[in-house]
Design a binder for these strands. Structure first.
Lengths: 109, 109
DNA sequence: CAACCATATTACCAGATGGTGATTCAATCT
DNA sequence: AGATTGAATCACCATCTGGTAATATGGTTG
């Protein structure tokens, strides 16, 4: 912990990346890609989001390195570009779990 | 990895928390609290942000459990409520480091 | 080449968000 | 009680952002 010093410039870059994960739609997309790479159409189907919307989210995720792209004929395949994402989500989920437990304990006690 | 299943509801909660970290001003505040608890005035001085602004950010960070509060007389002391935050930042910084290295390598090669 | 398909891009709107000045609230001090 | 101080809240504005319909782009197929 504390391995990295948060200079102002670095802070902006880190915030930019957290912000990208701070949108349920984008987390849905990343989660959909957890098992295997998918085409845009498959992502649309898996998430229920609109086409233009998915495309926009994918551009952002790709520009930040969260997903990779591979074009094959008519299709574009997207895949997870950084497995750390799920580690980040797991830490957040762990926090939520702890929160929920604490709340339950409070209500019970 | 994959310890947690991302249900739609959980996704929203996780996104909400990432979004809170997706703002440079809030990361600045958390970073300022890294060494020790601070009063609001000290946070204002450390970050250079406006008073109302800091207060608003602190409300959000507190509502999500990222910071704790303790009132003592006229002052309100804030401190880190969850050390995991820095672990999350470190992972993000690690990603950025890897990105930068890859970009350098690309330019050099 | 024309029709077609998957994806990207554009234009646009509604709602959310960060920043700020003014005001209020709460606690302390004279 | 009145003045003072630190912090929270309110009101407001400018900007950003997600969603969507329409259009454009690039590739494929008949």
């Amino acid at each position: 912990m504390g391995k990295h010093v948060l200079t102002p410039e670095l802070t902006v870059l880190v915030a930019e990346r957290f912000k990208a994960l701070g949108e349920a739609a984008r987390l849905q997309i990343l989660d959909a890609l957890r098992r295997r790479e998918l085409t845009v159409s498959e992502i649309i189907e898996a998430t229920g989001l609109g086409q233009a919307n998915v495309s926009k989210h994918l551009q952002l995720l790709h520009s930040l390195g969260f997903v990779s792209r591979r074009k094959d004929g008519l299709y574009v395949y997207y895949s997870i570009g950084d497995k750390d994402v799920f580690q980040l989500c797991d830490i957040m989920c762990g926090r939520l779990e702890a929160e929920t437990k604490a709340r339950r304990k409070l209500l019970a006690g």
